[in-house]
Design a binder for these strands. Sequence first.
DNA 1: GAATGATCATGC
DNA 2: GCATGATCATTC
Length: 224
Amino acid sequence: MQPLLPPPKSIDELLERAESIAGLSFTELADMAGVELPSNFKHHKGWTGQLIEVLLGSYAGSKPQQDFPDLGVELKTIPIDAYGKPLETTYVCYAPLINVAGIEWSNSNVKNKLSCVLWMPVEGSRDILPQDRRVAMPVLWQPSETQNAVLEQDWTELQDMICLGQVEKINASIGQALQIRPKAADGSSLTEAIGANGEVIQTRPRGYYLRKEFTHEILKSYFS
DNA sequence: GAATGATCATGC
DNA sequence: GCATGATCATTC
């Protein structure tokens, strides 16, 4: 998919664009973008996110930066049920597993990505066909002090385990708001990490994700 | 039913 | 393989 518009020049312009597609169905959005609508997402898991990106004027790419670097805004689509509750966790970024000296919360990719997020909730219930799913109203969010503290605490705990060679002990149950889970094409994918004795080991790549409870709180606070 | 771990598509 | 976009599907 190619961007349909130049990047927005201001947050207001970005919000206007986002609000202008709220309420529209995936069928209407696919038409606007000139792309085919998948009948399901089994083989097109990132389709919705990329569709919203091109409609709002984000440059496609896999750069480890925000979607709108000039505005300092990250774009996230999030599937919700009929009650506005998230149906999935939210991927944040890759978890660095090696050469981690010098990485602190203040300069981490997680903090950078989550410093300002434009959430685009979309209907995601599996009993709604992709063609009928609609986009909800956007939410521009910046973490509160409390939220930032929780994120920092989780990140520190997890990143400490990585530094101490305990990556193999990390599972998705660790962390109140942030968790680490595998992030790879399949189980054969490997990357370097720190082992229990400080040696270099091979392990499955991991990513940081936000729990549904945390994103639910974000969405609720803007609709109450 | 929800959560964890696994997986799919794409561009370099 | 890394990093983006995430959802799937097995396990609990």
